[in-house]
Computed example of a mutant assay.
Amino acid sequence: MFKYIIKRLLQAIPLLIGVSIIAFSIMHLAPGGPLSVYTLNPSITAQDIDKIKVILGLDQPVHIQYLKWAKGMFTGNWGTTFFGGRPVFDVIVERIPATFLLMGSAMSIAIIIGMFTGILGAFRRYSVFDYLATTGAMVALSFPTFWFGLMAIYIFSLKLGWFPSGGMFTLGGEEDIFDLLRHLVLPTFVLALVLVAQWSRYTRSSFLEVIHQDYIRTAKAKGIKGSK
């Protein structure tokens, strides 16, 4: 077992290196490159851009930039933000509680609804509910999450005004639990939508596999009802 774990870890090293090279290349191949936030600012001159390149080390060869970037990623020195000049690591750590809250809420809803839908669809196979659930899951999996997010903001925030379009609390308001839940509803259900589709399909397939096992058929043949 220990040798297997070591082998898998060693096999992951080339994969991680390849992913890091691709991520680094995407930053440089993007329009404007890493300095796009500055080049799109009309108040910054070409001389200022050259100075920023020297400060950030972007005037050095690409392979040197990659090695320094990879070393910083590995050691936790992720640089500073373009806006505010704060350490990137501190900004990420600051956002972790909100991320856990959002993902935890979305995952909890997805598991509950997804498993219920999948189990009911398996026991009522080829019923109207099963067809509707299957179609809804395929539709949810066919569109990217950000599209559902944009549509949810447009309908429920801009048009109906039921929920805020962003943030965790209302600016200038009381930061209580009810305000937090109001801000949490829209993003939670948008993220849970695709997760519900995944969990329902997985649960349905798993239950269909189980209920067609030989011991299930044997139990039914001996008179045991399906509700037991």
Rank of each mutant, 00 (worst) to 15 (best):
A219M: 04
G172K: 04
H183L: 00
L184R: 07
I26S: 02
S165Q: 11
K228N: 12
K68N: 15
V88P: 04
P42M: 10
K51Q: 11
P97G: 09
G104E: 04
I5M: 05
L35H: 02
G173N: 07
I216K: 02
V139I: 15
K225N: 07
R8M: 08
E175T: 14
L191P: 05
E94F: 12
G118S: 03
V196Q: 09
G72A: 09
A133Y: 04
V54Q: 13
S206T: 13
S43R: 13
I64S: 11
R124M: 08
V139R: 07
T135H: 01
F156S: 00
L56D: 03
L193W: 14
I13F: 12
G121M: 09
S108D: 00
A106K: 09
F82L: 12
W199V: 15
V62Y: 15
S36H: 12
V19F: 13
I96P: 01
I109F: 15
K53Y: 02
I211T: 11
K71M: 07
V19R: 11
T45P: 07
G57Y: 01
F178M: 13
I49W: 01
I49P: 00
Q11K: 03
I22A: 15
S142L: 08
A106C: 10
L132V: 14
I112D: 02
K7D: 02
F89T: 14
G121S: 15
G72N: 06
Q198T: 14
A98M: 13
P144E: 06
S127R: 08
H212K: 03
T188S: 15
G118E: 06
P14N: 05
A30T: 05
G33C: 11
S127F: 04
S205G: 08
L195H: 07
L35S: 04
I113Q: 01
S205W: 02
S20M: 12
T75N: 07
D214M: 00
I224T: 11
L132D: 00
K68T: 12
A192T: 09
A137K: 03
P87K: 06
V190L: 06
K53T: 01
A70Q: 11
F163M: 06
T134E: 00
I211E: 06
F83L: 14
F74T: 09
I119H: 06
P164V: 03
M107H: 04
I49R: 00
L35N: 02
I22F: 14
F189D: 01
R124V: 03
Q198G: 02
Y66G: 04
S43I: 12
I109S: 08
I5H: 01
V196W: 08
A221T: 08
H212D: 12
S200V: 05
M168P: 00
S43N: 14
I49T: 00
I22C: 11
Y154Q: 13
L15S: 10
L195W: 04
L40C: 01
L160M: 14
K225L: 07
S206N: 08
S200N: 12
T39M: 10
A192P: 10
